[in-house]
Design a protein around this nucleic acid. Structure first.
Lengths: 240, 240
DNA sequence: CGACACCTTGAAGAGGTTCAAGAAATGTGG
DNA sequence: CCACATTTCTTGAACCTCTTCAAGGTGTCG
């Protein structure tokens, strides 16, 4: 058992509204505290779980930032997502009782460990939790549909614009700026997620800077013209 | 209510092992019969559900073949999957209580309509069903990871090879040939799924034919050299 | 049998990749 | 706290894959 494990409660967690169902009675709320076995700290660069590892739990991210990636033996590598505080990670492991991707912390992080058999158990009692779990999985499916659209039909500029808007929107929902963000991942990781090479990501950033759409200083990005990015994503130029 | 609706039972359905949990008691098995409200027939070209439509049910495909696709207002279009008998469709609708893509029958089809509130209700009683639903959703998430890998890191030949192998494998699991298949979709639909233009799909088929890897007569495909396709997917040429 | 949808193939062009070199930032150990 | 190694990022030039545009062929269905 992890020595850094800490026993905690969801019922007074400030991220509750992000990862837990709303509108529960006090009784149900305290029942939810049994969901989280422990918390776990993960250092930057370390893995929360890896491909092939036995699946036991879902993880609610309390602090920090993760990437999930698929690395095949033949050298292909695909970042399948970036996850931040309040998001649930580990859903890939349910189907085969083992994880099918790696989850790597891009900065020091802390997660709530929720044993899946306990989730299923409490779900049978609290229908709001049951439905919430279903929604979380459905949301991930829909998110991935969006990524497929991006990878299947967008050009480099459109992909990066969609990526930036998505990131800043999620950060904004967590109380951060609507226009400024610090990237926690490298150009190469962005490229892997977007199906581009790191050079293309870099060049596209430079193009946005030339156009006056964003300011970029390394990983610090300030969006100057959100609408312009939105137009790219919405494919305005191609309209008839 | 659909006039073609038919009241039916899962307990003696020959597709049960594909869409239902295994190893249930007789009692539980008959409880599952309540899952399916009705069956519904969909003609080739018709939609099972469309983007924006209220979500009520999941659908188990009994016969026929579907595509799901995302069509945005700005003219982008992405096929997100092809579904065949025994597969479950409609999971995208759970998160927002409305569907976020279109499901279109590529041949005359019949589906079992399973109202989702009933699924949740029975899931609370039969833990095997509960777990099964979770697995189905997780499987879809993992499948989409694979598509992201394909779209993000494979070249045209590799994509088409992966596509053919996946199709033939799923058909084989349903008792069809390991080497022969009839495509139910157009080159354009294949292209949309694979992030390629229809001309590229056509050219890549022609290349496979030249190489003696497959025989193609319109939509009839015979795989002559499975290993060759497998090598493409496994990226053997790029190995160090 | 004719209209229509679907498929194939060629030639030219665009977008992204690859390879390479150098600059900037970051981390490490003394 | 500084020097050095390492990682990360940027930019240029040549190349390659896939796309676009175009034309003709094939198959299908009323």
């Amino acid at each position: 058992m992890n020595p850094q494990a800490i026993k905690v409660a969801c019922s007074n967690c400030n991220l509750r509204e992000l990862c837990m169902p709303m509108g529960l009675s006090d009784h149900d709320l305290h029942r939810l505290d049994d969901l989280v076995a422990v918390r776990r700290r993960i250092k930057r660069g370390d893995t929360l779980f890896t491909n092939g590892e036995k699946f036991t739990s879902l993880y609610a991210i309390r602090t920090g930032f993760f990437k999930t990636c698929l690395a095949t033996e033949d050298g292909r590598d695909q970042v399948t997502g970036f996850q931040m505080a309040g998001e649930i990670i580990g859903l890939d492991g349910i189907v085969n009782d083992q994880h099918s991707c790696d989850a790597i912390a891009l900065e020091d992080a802390e997660v709530c460990v929720m044993p899946f058999d306990r989730i299923e158990e409490i779900s049978r009692e609290i229908t709001a939790l049951q439905h919430h779990v279903h929604k979380i999985m459905s949301r991930e499916i829909v998110r991935e549909h969006g990524v497929m659209l991006l990878l299947g039909s967008m050009r480099a500029e459109e992909r990066l614009a969609a990526f930036l808007l998505n990131l800043v929107q999620r950060l904004h929902a967590r109380g951060f700026s609507q226009s400024e963000l610090v990237l926690r991942m490298t150009r190469e990781e962005i490229g892997s997620y977007l199906g581009l090479k790191l050079e293309t990501v870099s060049r596209t950033f430079s193009k946005f800077v030339e156009d006056g759409t964003v300011e970029v200083k390394q990983r610090h990005v300030r969006i100057l013209d959100t609408e312009s990015l939105q137009r790219l994503v919405n494919n305005i130029s191609h309209c008839h």
